[in-house]
């Protein structure tokens, strides 16, 4: 399992691994928002938590289709499926690797971008905490979507269609926590619910994803 994690991290961070693309995408999306809604600081301050959450979510989505597709195409997944590691473990490790290479960097980058959107000072902590607690759910749910669409030629688009509705609860609680934090309100409840979703997804989604992978490997 650790070997798999180290391999996936190595592949992701080396040339052509796509690491950094998600971050760049996040940056571009956030930079584009003021062009769309106008430069008024009060407006930007109001929408900053939501925009940052949606930007992070879309950036997360961007690299999902590679999660299993590469291993599927080059036959690695066949050998992994017959390896002594359970396929559920493979899914969990790959989701963790995805989070370490996208969710975590996005979380760390969000405060920098928050400056561009005039997020009030008290909102920074809540933004980072909500992203740190919420992005793991995005990775695990995404792993399920990636497992469903792994054998398909044009899986990327379908993956978005399948995964985005599943992201609704995570987005609602995550963005709500960030928003309440930014407005100086109590943000504990949405954060607790967000954590619950992340934990629940991390515990259960690998089983669904592994089931889908087994079907696709047949």
């Amino acid at each position: 399992m650790i070997a798999l994690l180290r391999r996936d991290l190595a592949i992701a961070t080396r040339a052509g691994g796509g690491f950094g693309l998600g971050l760049a995408f996040f940056l571009v999306v956030v930079v584009l928002v003021p062009f769309g809604v106008g430069p008024e600081t009060s407006v930007l301050t109001r929408i900053a938590p939501g925009v940052l959450w949606i930007g992070a979510l879309l950036a997360c989505l961007l690299s999902l289709d590679r999660m299993f597709a590469l291993d599927y195409e080059d036959g690695s997944l066949d050998l992994l499926a017959t390896a002594p590691i359970p396929l559920e473990g493979v899914v969990a490790v790959k989701a963790l690797a995805h989070w370490l290479t996208t969710g975590l960097p996005l979380t760390l980058m969000a405060p920098l971008l928050a400056v561009l959107l005039n997020l009030p000072p008290q909102g920074f902590v809540w933004l980072v905490v909500s992203l740190a607690l919420g992005t793991p759910a995005l990775s695990v749910i995404g792993a399920f979507g990636a497992a469903l669409t792994v054998g398909l030629r044009r899986g990327g688009l379908l993956l978005s269609l399948l995964v985005l509705p599943l992201y609704v609860p995570t987005l609602i609680f995550g963005a709500e926590a960030a928003r309440r934090g930014a407005e100086g309100m109590e943000a504990g409840t949405p954060l607790a619910l967000l954590t619950g979703i992340s934990l629940g997804c991390a515990a259960l989604m690998p089983f669904a994803a592994a089931a889908a992978l087994r079907v696709n490997l047949r």
Binding site: L148, P169, I172, E176, P190, L193, A208, V215
Partner: peptide
């Protein structure tokens, strides 16, 4: 058969998330 299996799994997972979304939206 693959399609039937995959959509069934999606239906199960989707049902859980549909209920979750319902409560999330109420909260929101």
């Amino acid at each position: 058969d693959t399609a039937a299996d995959l959509t069934s799994v999606l239906c199960l997972v989707g049902s859980v998330f549909a209920v979750l979304s319902r409560y999330a939206v109420l909260f929101w």
